[in-house]
Design a protein around this nucleic acid. Sequence first.
DNA 1: ATACTTACTTACCGTTCGGTAAGTTTTGAA
DNA 2: TTCAAAACTTACCGAACGGTAAGTAAGTAT
Lengths: 194, 194
Amino acid sequence: MANIATGLNEQILETAKDLFINKGYHGLSMREISDALNVSKAALYYYFKDKEELFLEILKIYLEDMSIALEKIQAESTSSKQQIQHFIRHVLTQPAKQRATIRLASQEIIHLTPKVRKTFDTLYREKFIGKVQAILQKGIDSGEFRKMQIEVAVWALLGIMFPYFYPTHSGDSPLPDKTIQEVTDIYLNGIIKK
Amino acid sequence: MANIATGLNEQILETAKDLFINKGYHGLSMREISDALNVSKAALYYYFKDKEELFLEILKIYLEDMSIALEKIQAESTSSKQQIQHFIRHVLTQPAKQRATIRLASQEIIHLTPKVRKTFDTLYREKFIGKVQAILQKGIDSGEFRKMQIEVAVWALLGIMFPYFYPTHSGDSPLPDKTIQEVTDIYLNGIIKK
DNA sequence: ATACTTACTTACCGTTCGGTAAGTTTTGAA
DNA sequence: TTCAAAACTTACCGAACGGTAAGTAAGTAT
């Protein structure tokens, strides 16, 4: 249960996130959200301009968290290899709901209007992809990693974790440590210089 | 343009696939499909029981194609490494629309009723995932690949290709050969025994 | 006590949804 | 030439959609 003392706007964000993850953008109605919270539908429109803004806000919060985590990883770890290890571990040890948010963003963003999509794309690159790319680029420049097309390396890293953003591979339970280790091994062996 | 002589039911499947890819399951209405084909909405229901059945049929056709391709790869290539190479090349050289169908299946199947979802899951495993797993298992057993959790290896392979199932990474143009090569290198270096 | 703001609810809007019943045209076999 | 089956169209259904205008109860500042 969420903290009962939080404001309604935060409850909306949290509940809507759960429901969007399970039903998708078009599959979830504003009515369903308000019903789940036992408030009127119009109450949602008091806090959020429309459905799109509510959805975008959920993604923004996620990206902000990720951005902070990535900065911490960059600051704390010394080698690029270590930074990648910590990044994979950070993402895959998140609760299933958090992991699912990345998937939600990736797959539902195309259903929004171009303007909102553009807003998201900018943030996505700034707060997430750009930082991952920076870590990898440094590793390539320093000779820790093979010379590669940086974009391929970035997307391979994101992609290799992607299956674990689906509930199929985890339910609600955390991923086994062995699985996280194996994913890390495959990726690092794939990019490290021999 | 598709062959103008094909029957309406095949035109429906082809057009609906395009539209489902761009708008998602709930984001696409039956009306939009019939409008795109210049037929009445009821015509769709002459060929398909309901929206779900139409959607499922699209996925079934894709899985059948993939199944045949996988069998051919298994039959023609000798080493497991070669089979993986051919598999990655086969998938990533498909037209963008075909690649997008895997993504469509993965992300929209959860929006269908449990019964239809179960039907799909069974086929997905039988025609696709199971065969990929068999290739990898053989490579592990023969000592070509490292000892790994087979499930992790399977999903890493699918995952590493997943970014290229989004239009962002390709538009409608084919993927550069260099990219395909790089993806293959990363994955194979990740799993091959040293 | 009064005036104003915040935080909602009730009741409704026009539109679109998936789906169907009934009618109409086209086709092809006898 | 007949006639039934196949291949549709027209017209509609109830339900659900995103969104809003108007009202209201509870605080808060003066």
